[in-house]
Amino acid sequence: MTVREEHLTTEGLSAYAEQAGLERVGARPKLRRYIVEAWRRRELAATLASYRIHAAMGQNRLGLVWIVLRPTLLALMFGTIFFVILPNSSRPDNFLPFLVVGVFVFEFFSASLGQGARSIINNQGLVRSLNFPRILMPMATVLQRVFEIIPVAITMMVIVALSGEPITWNWLLVPVVLAIMAVFNFGIALIFARLTVHLRDLTQVLPLLTRLMFYSTGIFYSIEAVLADRPDLLALARLNPVYDYIALVRAQIVTGNSQTMEMWIVAVAAALLCFIIGVIFFWRAEERYGRD
């Protein structure tokens, strides 16, 4: 038994809705409007990021100390392992500060990638119950990383200074490099946040990808020294933006590491390109998030 008082054909209803001035619900807004709306609601991303840090750390006894303790222990571990297994000759100069910068800066990238990729699927509850531009979710995860990189970068610089590196005016460029890198990380997080929604299996592959990046980016060895006789591979490795960000930070605070104009160009271009592609790519699937 079906009773429908207002039985109308499909065209009839949509025309009726339009005539009454109703708008389609959940329709993906135009890119401009989307960005304006997301910007207007940016407080949500920032608040979520800072609450998350407190919540995650509140469960541990040492709390916020872990933000700096984790990369420090990681650097210590790698330092010990590679100091033992790598022969003296293949270790870059100023090994300790070289490695510390590599590990700390790479953590900024890998955490943004890993958690950014899960930012939609891990927040299904929020995404399914409230309406807001979904881009705020990856934005919150990357912002969380940005908040965390501040104490991490300070710790990094303290360790580097303690290891005997001279403090110069160039140290002031470190936040600049990290700021450019944050834009790059945001773009990457956006791209992977959407990809994981389409292909859940990606979360299994991602740690592998991160590991591969870790070993190929020259965290504990000098790419220039290892690939000295393979200029083609070296050129390829230098195109990896993560390598450029690490190399640029090293160039500012660790002696014996030089910077070129080309590195700055790759760093800025990669950040802008990733950001633009990321925003558009993520926005195009706006209606899709939260459906499964």
């Binding site: 619900v25 959940g26 329709a27 995404v127 399914r128 119950s129 309406n131 209606e287 899709r288 459906r291």
Partner: peptide
């Protein structure tokens, strides 16, 4: 959820 626009 559909009326709210959370599922298309």
């Amino acid at each position: 959820r559909s009326v709210a626009g959370l599922i298309s």
